[in-house]
Design a protein around this nucleic acid. Structure first.
Lengths: 158, 158
DNA sequence: CCACATTCTTGCAGTATGCAACATTAATGA
DNA sequence: TCATTAATGTTGCATACTGCAAGAATGTGG
C-alpha cells in the first residue's frame, strides 16, 4: 500500500472514530443526571450478561472488585439493580437489572441507534451498501470481539 | 430504506464503534501509569489548540472550571504543562504543553495509528478503497466537526 | 478436621466532578 | 473619574471512581 493510500484510510477511520465517540457521548447525556458513565457500563454488562457475580463483573469492566462493589452498592441504592445471595453458593451474590435499570439501558441504546440511523439515512443507498461492506471488512480484519455478550471494555459503549 | 438494510448498516456501524473504542483504550493503556484519561484529554486539547486559558479549556472538555483547574494543577505538578499569566490580560493564565507533555500525546497517537494501520493492512486494496469512500460518506453525513483543532469532546479520542 | 482458594467486604489514599462563594482584574456607563 | 457589572481564576465542600491491602465468610480437597 502506498503512503497516500495509507494516510487517507487512517485519516478517514480516525474521523469516523471521533464521530462515533461523539454520538456515544450524546446518547449518554440523556441519562447523565441519573447514572454516571461507569455506572452505565455496569448496567450494559448486566443487560447483555444477565445475572452476574461481583468478581465476574469486575473482570468484564476491567476494574478492581472493590470499585465494582461500591458501584453496585450505589446502583442498588438507586433501585437500578438488585443483589441477592446465590443459593447454590452462599459466598457469591448475584446482581441483575431491575425494570427501571433496563429502561435506562434501552433508552440510551435507542437514542444511539436513532442517531446512527439519522446519519445513514442521509447517505445514498449505494453509499449505505458500501458502508456495510466496508465496516464488515474492517471488523473482520480487526478480529472484532463484539459478538453476543462479549463486552471487552464497553466504554462509552452501549 | 428497508428494515433489513437499516438493521444491517446499524449493526455494522455499532460493531465498528466497539472495535474503535477498544483500539482507543489500548492505545491509552501505554501511558496509563503517567496520566489518567481525563488528564490525557486535556493534553490532547492543548496539542491541537495551543495556548489555552482555563475557561476555554473547561468548555472544550465539557467540565466545570474547578475541575479543569485541579487537573491543570496536577499536570503542572507532573511537568506536563506550564501555566503563566497572560500579559495582555492579567485575569487569565494560559497553559501549554511542555516537551514532555507533547511526547505523551505523540506516543499515544502513534500507537493508535499503528493499530489502525495494522488492521487495514489485513484488508485487500479494494476493501481499503471502499473503506475510505464509505467512511468519508459517513463522516460527511454525520456533519463531522473533526477538522483542524475542533475537539468537541475528545473522549478516548486522540 | 485442617489447609487452601474463592468471594465479598471494608479501610485508606488519590483523582475527578460540580456547585457555590470569593478575590482579582477588566470593561462599561454615568 | 468612579461605581457597577462582567469575566476569570481560585478554593471549600460533597460525592463518585479507582486501586491496593487486609480481613471475614464460605467452599474445596486432602
Amino acid at each position: 500500500m502506498n503512503g497516500e493510500d495509507q494516510a487517507a484510510v487512517i485519516s478517514a477511520v480516525l474521523s469516523g472514530s471521533r464521530l462515533l465517540v461523539a454520538i456515544a457521548a450524546r446518547s449518554l447525556g440523556a441519562v447523565a443526571d441519573r447514572v454516571t458513565l461507569p455506572q452505565f457500563r455496569m448496567l450494559v454488562v448486566l443487560s447483555g450478561h444477565g445475572e452476574t457475580k461481583l468478581v465476574t463483573m469486575a473482570e468484564l469492566l476491567d476494574v478492581n472488585s472493590s470499585t465494582a462493589m461500591r458501584m453496585a452498592d450505589r446502583l442498588a441504592a438507586a433501585g437500578l439493580v438488585v443483589r441477592e445471595v446465590n443459593p447454590m453458593n452462599r459466598r457469591e451474590s448475584l446482581m441483575r437489572l431491575t425494570d427501571e435499570g433496563r429502561r435506562i439501558v434501552d433508552q440510551v441504546t435507542a437514542r444511539r441507534r436513532d442517531e446512527i440511523a439519522a446519519i445513514v439515512s442521509r447517505m445514498s443507498p449505494a453509499e449505505r451498501q458500501a458502508l456495510i461492506s466496508a465496516m464488515a471488512a474492517f471488523n473482520e480484519a480487526g478480529g472484532e470481539p463484539a459478538e453476543a455478550g462479549s463486552h471487552p471494555l464497553g466504554w462509552p459503549d452501549a
